[in-house]
């Protein structure tokens, strides 16, 4: 939902790089290289806006989310949140920032402590950030939060195993919004849920955003779900953003051949629409992030690849900042005949 009083973005990520070092040997361990999980990713996010991050495994979408939260080492680039560069903050410096940025995880089974009753799971962040000092106060707040996410307040003394997957995901959301964050990073928040439950949780995300004005980074591989919740979508491939567009434009007018391939691969739940759709299935699989192709990383699978694509890395560019693409077909390289 577009913007607020000022134009300063809530979050500004600039040329973010996250490289995981690779070692060989057990005793004489030596560094043999690095996996470029995220390699030069830039985007901005306004308050109350939802940015979807989509891509196939290994594209760096989850690592990008973790890097914004500083839950993984950032090798290069900057993360500016609420006007402050948080890239080099130490643990103590990050503490107040963490209250403003929360995370919702994919696995509603692994992300809740099985030994804690719901009251403590939701109350813990309140205690950590000193938002509700007394135990009674935290309990009261946890009851409110449970109702906010569509559970009953009297469920407060139950343990995670007493809930279904969809209910656990609601508890995870209650824990995340307990501290009034300005940004919620949701990493595959509905993909572990049954189809009939996904819509409930998607609607809950939309309701909470309307009510509290949080911004979301919504990371998922299911483009239909991402498109539904997001204002803008960034498509990632092997550590880089290849295209950013408003949700509606991305389906109507995908520019990058990878985006086109991704959309074509996703079946639409309608046999008539499916029969009428042109089918171009892209060949091959995503190459290893350890040995990414030169130039444009998609050129090895791209049906429209040109000689320049193997040599020169295309930059993300576009008109008006609303629709940007990193592809030589759309952004001519200076001094190069395509």
């Amino acid at each position: 939902m577009p913007p607020s009083e000022n134009d300063a973005p809530l979050l500004c990520v600039e040329r973010l790089k996250v490289h995981f070092p690779l070692y060989k040997g057990v005793i004489f361990k030596r560094r043999v290289g690095a996996a470029q999980a995220v390699d030069g990713v830039s985007f901005t996010l306004r308050a109350g806006e939802t940015l979807g991050l989509v891509g196939e495994s290994g594209c760096g979408k989850s690592t990008t989310g973790l890097a914004v939260l500083r839950m993984t080492e950032v090798n290069d680039g900057r993360v500016v949140f609420e006007g402050r560069d948080i890239t080099r903050l130490d643990r103590a410096g990050m503490q107040p920032i963490r209250r403003r940025m929360q995370m919702v995880y994919q696995d509603p089974y692994g992300s809740l402590n099985p030994r804690m009753p719901v009251a403590d799971i939701i109350g813990e962040p309140l205690a950590v950030h000193g938002l509700a000092p007394g135990k009674a106060e935290r309990r009261e707040r946890a009851r409110e939060l449970l109702q906010m996410v569509g559970l009953r307040a009297d469920m407060i003394d139950r343990y995670p195993h007493e809930f279904s997957g969809g209910q656990r995901q609601r508890i995870g959301i209650a824990r995340a919004i307990a501290v009034h964050p300005g940004l919620l990073i949701c990493d595959e928040p509905v993909s572990a849920l049954d189809v009939s439950i996904q819509a409930q949780v998607v609607n809950l995300f939309e309701d909470l955003q309307e009510r509290f004005g949080m911004a979301y980074i919504f990371i998922a591989h299911d483009l239909a779900v991402v498109r539904h919740v997001s204002d803008r979508i960034a498509v990632m491939y092997l550590g880089r953003i290849v295209e950013v567009a408003a949700s509606a434009d991305l389906y109507r007018q995908p520019l990058h051949p990878y985006t086109q391939a991704l959309l074509a691969a996703i079946p639409i739940p309608d046999p008539a629409a499916e029969a009428a759709r042109p089918r171009q299935i892209v060949a091959g699989e995503v190459p290893s992030v350890l040995r990414p192709p030169s130039g444009c990383r998609f050129h090895t699978r791209c049906p429209k690849a040109m000689p320049v694509c193997a040599r020169i890395e295309p930059v993300l560019a576009g008109e008006g900042g609303t629709h940007a693409v990193a592809c030589h077909l759309h952004n001519a390289v200076e001094g190069e005949a395509a």
Partner: peptide, 14 residues
């Protein structure tokens, strides 16, 4: 279920 080819403004009916 959300559909790729549909308007995104409509709310899902869970």
């Amino acid at each position: 279920i959300p559909r790729l080819d549909r308007d995104t403004a409509t709310r899902l009916e869970p």
